[in-house]
Design a protein around this nucleic acid. Structure first.
Lengths: 145, 145
DNA sequence: GATTTATAGTTACTTTTAGTAACCTAAATC
DNA sequence: GATTTAGGTTACTAAAAGTAACTATAAATC
């Protein structure tokens, strides 16, 4: 695809720029289509660093205020917890109840759908727990070999 | 850890530097402890953009060569697929079989443990499929309100 | 015999995302 | 009147992901 840089710019070259633009459009469209795949959509949304952990924390503790949740998870930053909770709220997994008090009080809770997601997360977590020894020994082997 | 360069270094300043170091050690230790949590460990490892999708693709197709897997996933870059597969191999979810041929041939397959992970991923995917309409409508509501 | 093709990478670079530190609000307490 | 509190936001830095170009090598093609 790379052109020799010291050639005269011709009409043909301008046309190839047009072609490149068209190709980019087609690729972008293809990308959007693949994004419509439901599995991919949801997996990408909850496959970030904090979503499942937040869901698990809320699920096991019921209602939690922001800082309590933050403390529960431990090493999440304030900003990332805010971002994560907004996303989970947007998707309908978490409900957010604001009390008009000072200092502010905001309570987070799983919705019914959030409870469903937690069931899934719990199964994953259970399975992770049972497999961890095997995973750790596999990691050690990999580093040696 | 940078010191102001144009101040006189006093004993008091050295002490505060020491304190900072100690605090950092404590924080690092706390972080490591939280990282020992098995659920967190495994979830963080597979909660990247391509791990679950790779597992699902390998699970539904059996053995796949690198480019076939890449094509199957669609919009993953070569580099990220390599990185993802190395991680999955390291954790013992995926096996990698190299044939000494030219052009090179490398076959990827789920291990038994990988199949277990796929079961989990499948359940998550199934659930995601059933919930998607509710999720999408929740997103629309969120944008409006 | 030079050129092209194929596959599974790696390397260097750019862009996007996550994480950190400092700040804001406004009533209650010391 | 300075400090504490809870739940943020903003501006900045570090890390992760993505892109483009390159590698190796034998067989097939011109």
């Amino acid at each position: 695809m790379s052109k020799p840089s010291n050639t005269v710019v011709t009409i043909a070259e301008n046309e190839s720029v047009e072609e490149e633009k068209n190709l980019k459009l087609i690729l972008d469209r293809a990308k959007d289509q693949s994004k419509l795949c439901p599995v991919r959509d949801v997996i990408h949304r909850i496959s970030d660093k904090w979503s499942l952990l937040s869901i698990l924390a809320l699920g096991t503790h019921g209602t939690l205020r922001f800082n309590a949740l933050k403390k529960e998870i431990g090493d999440v930053s304030q900003r990332m917890l805010t971002v994560t909770l907004r996303n989970l709220e947007e998707d309908g997994f978490v409900s957010r109840k604001i009390y008009a008090e000072v200092p502010p009080r905001v309570e987070y809770q799983l919705t019914d759908m959030g409870q469903g997601l937690m069931q899934q997360a719990l199964q994953l977590a259970d399975w992770a727990n049972t497999q961890l020894p095997a995973i750790i020994s596999s990691r050690k082997k990999f580093k040696k070999g």
